[in-house]
Design a binder for these strands. Structure first.
Length: 409
RNA sequence: CGGGGGGUAGCGCAGUCUGGCUAGCGCGCAACGUUCGGGACGUUGAGGUCAUGGGUUCGAGUCCCAUCCUCCCGACCA
């Protein structure tokens, strides 16, 4: 893709609204555009990253046999009255009336709706177990939106729901999901911890949270520098007895055993092998996808910009063409790389070299290729690794070998 | 919802305290020329409801009142 033809307009100055690294760099790098407090548009670069994360999630969810669906964004308030959560969530819900004065909300989460949908189709143990998921925008009228995508009023969430015949089935599903969540976060390049948590107003009797350590985190965990473990509660380390220190954490995922709270409220019952009518046993599994982006950017950056992990970067390679006459060679190199399924952003702009270098660092693609004087003289390409700033000087063959190895192609 | 900042060109800001000529600067943008491997330079130019509404005054970006927006801290947070 050509930089000159892309909707990438980086800002030279730090945006004023953003006080944290992730929001500052995502806005500065033209990944996001702020529309209102807690409301952001994903620009093409941001959309690329978002889709990469979504596809990682899809791959892992599908590997569990979960099926993707998309529930409606508008939810009639009656749905919420069935569980009483219209009161629990209160003002956090965006509520409004349609032209016939019927009250709706913009979905803040979807336990009610998924149960409403599933109950219509499930009537036998033979149809279970079942897991459905969606990647959908959720709406919450936050009292205080902050830190860009960290806490916003409109955000992308992956929510999955499992349906089992009993607690044992749920336990198995839950265990698998927990393991898959760890795979997802690992693949996204995050360092995270898994902790047992309270289930809060979700109901149910077990839950785990997935947390990333960062200064802008809104949750607190206690960290033992002796053994490296994290704990929910303060007190000396139960494992090695050393003192614990407070760490701020970003919650990127949360999974719950719901039990039968929602199935009972919605009359989601099935007949078991013996013909006994039983409520479906449910679990729900959430990932804050947009918050995940914030967490990745927040924990993978330096003073120059973002350092995207290879798995989620908008492009694999930024190719800086510093001599206009080298454009044809750059295009043919890019074609070769694209055939290896490596996505190349060719900086073909008529800009000073420094501008291209700085933008490449800001955008944070993992590898930066430079075609300029050195290439004219030696036919060798300079490669700079964004993360380590290590520089290599390679001929085309060596370069392709290097990248094939990096991406396992 | 409480406390504290802020709102002036696309972006970042000065000017407001102490009211006074035609509202400035940097970046970006357009044109021309010179540059060309780590955010170059010169010349010229376009771009403004000074957040909004009301008030005081001969005169308001500047003073007063109200409202809106926004950032940070706190409360809240599946």
């Amino acid at each position: 893709m050509l930089f000159s033809k892309s909707f990438i307009f980086t800002q030279r100055e730090d945006p004023k609204v953003a006080e944290c690294n992730s929001a500052r760099l995502l806005l500065k790098g033209c990944f996001l555009s702020m529309i209102s407090s807690g409301v952001y548009s994903y620009l093409p670069l941001g959309k690329r990253v978002l889709e990469k994360v979504n596809n990682i999630i899809r791959k892992h969810m599908n590997s569990l046999g979960a099926e993707e669906l998309q529930l409606s964004y508008l939810q009639p308030i009656e749905m919420w009255e069935k569980t009483g959560r219209d009161k629990d969530l209160g003002d956090i819900m965006f509520r409004f009336k349609d032209r016939r004065a019927r009250e709706f909300v913009l979905g803040p989460t979807a336990e009610e709706e998924i149960t409403e949908v599933v109950r219509k189709y499930i009537s036998s143990y033979k149809q279970l177990p079942l897991t459905l998921y969606q990647i959908q925008t959720k709406f919450r009228d936050e009292p205080r939106a902050r830190f860009g995508l960290m806490r916003s009023c409109e955000f992308v969430m992956k929510d999955a729901y499992s349906f089992d015949i009993d607690e044992q089935g749920l336990g198995e599903n839950y265990k698998k999901m927990l393991a898959v969540y760890q795979d997802i976060f690992k693949e996204c390049g995050l360092e995270f911890v898994t902790v047992e948590a309270d289930s809060g107003f979700m109901g149910g009797d077990a839950s785990h949270e997935f947390m990333v350590s960062a200064g802008i985190g809104e949750d607190i965990l206690f960290y033992c520098c002796g053994c490296g473990s994290y704990f929910k509660k303060e007190g000396n380390c139960p494992q090695c007895g050393k003192n614990l220190e407070e760490k701020r954490m970003i919650e990127i995922g949360h999974i719950f055993k719901l039990g039968t709270k929602y199935s009972q409220a919605f009359d989601a019952f099935f007949l078991d092998r013996e013909g006994v009518r039983k409520p479906i046993t449910m679990g729900c599994y959430g990932i804050g996808v947009s918050r995940l982006l914030a967490a990745i950017a927040e924990t993978n950056c330096d003073d120059k910009g973002i350092i995207w992990p290879k798995s989620v970067s908008p492009f694999d390679i930024s190719l800086l063409v510093l001599e206009e006459k080298l454009l044809p060679q750059a295009f043919s190199l890019s074609e070769i790389l694209e055939k290896l399924k490596l996505h190349v952003l060719i900086d073909d702009r008529k800009e000073a070299a420094g501008v291209k270098f700085n933008d490449a660092f800001l955008l944070g693609n993992p590898f930066i290729l430079i075609m300029g004087k050195n290439y004219l003289n030696s036919k060798k390409i300079d490669l700079e690794i964004r993360k380590t700033r290590k520089k290599l000087n390679l001929n085309e063959e060596e370069l392709i070998k290097f990248l094939k190895n990096e991406y396992g192609r």
